[in-house]
Amino acid sequence: MSKRILTTFMIVFTLFLYAPTLLLPIFAFNDSSIIAFPLSGFTFEWFYSLTEADELRGAALNSLIIAAASSVLATCLALLATSATVRYKFPGKGLMIGVIMVPMFLPEIIIGVSLLTVVLLAGLKLSIYTIIMGHTLICTPFAIAILRSSFQQLDPSLEEASLDLGETRFDTFRRITLPLIMPGVTSSLLIAFTISLDEFVIAFFLSGTEPTLPVYIWSQLRFPQRIPSVMALGTLLLLLSIGLLTLSEVLRRRSVRRLGQHDTSGAW
């Protein structure tokens, strides 16, 4: 009895989570500019229309640049922070980790408004660079969470053995530490990239005249006749995100197998 309730609950819950997402591809291929059932026919028109929008291409390029830059920055910062915090004890360590992790839990709107204030006070111009700053800030905690577990799974005696065999600290990092935490680094890059790619609030506050894709999409929603194109664009973004997350998981599993380790971590 309770099993049936649970099963029903699971189905409803899953539908609730994913059904809205499925509407995107459905209407992206629907041969009508009105978003309503019944569907009227199949078309690639909306996808073709994407190739003609210059503004869209600009926004897509901005998004890619921002996602690439902030994922690399966030991952580098996280590498520095975790290699210090996992291996060494120092006063104020707990506080430092706490401060770095806070953006994970702060509402993005708060981060957006505060960053906007800072940028304006500093007299900077709003541009993709300010968005990169904001996105690096929100991606770093995720990167740290991922890299922390990589570092914790790394046997410290491997690094000691390398030192013992005559390598410097830098070469030890290059030859031992980095290759062994590479799966974590890749995960971190891909996940930070995904987060940045579809982040809206901070990008909206900090974008000025250079919109990212989500900001562009939002601006298009004011024009009903463009909604099917947005659906097509959304479908592409959805596929890209799923692709990136799958890639990160596949890479992680492959390296776990390659190193003959036990798979102890979860989905990340």
Partner: peptide, 10 residues
């Protein structure tokens, strides 16, 4: 020679 041997797994 470390107790865990510390063989580089990669």
């Amino acid at each position: 020679v470390f107790q865990s041997y510390a063989i580089f797994p990669h």
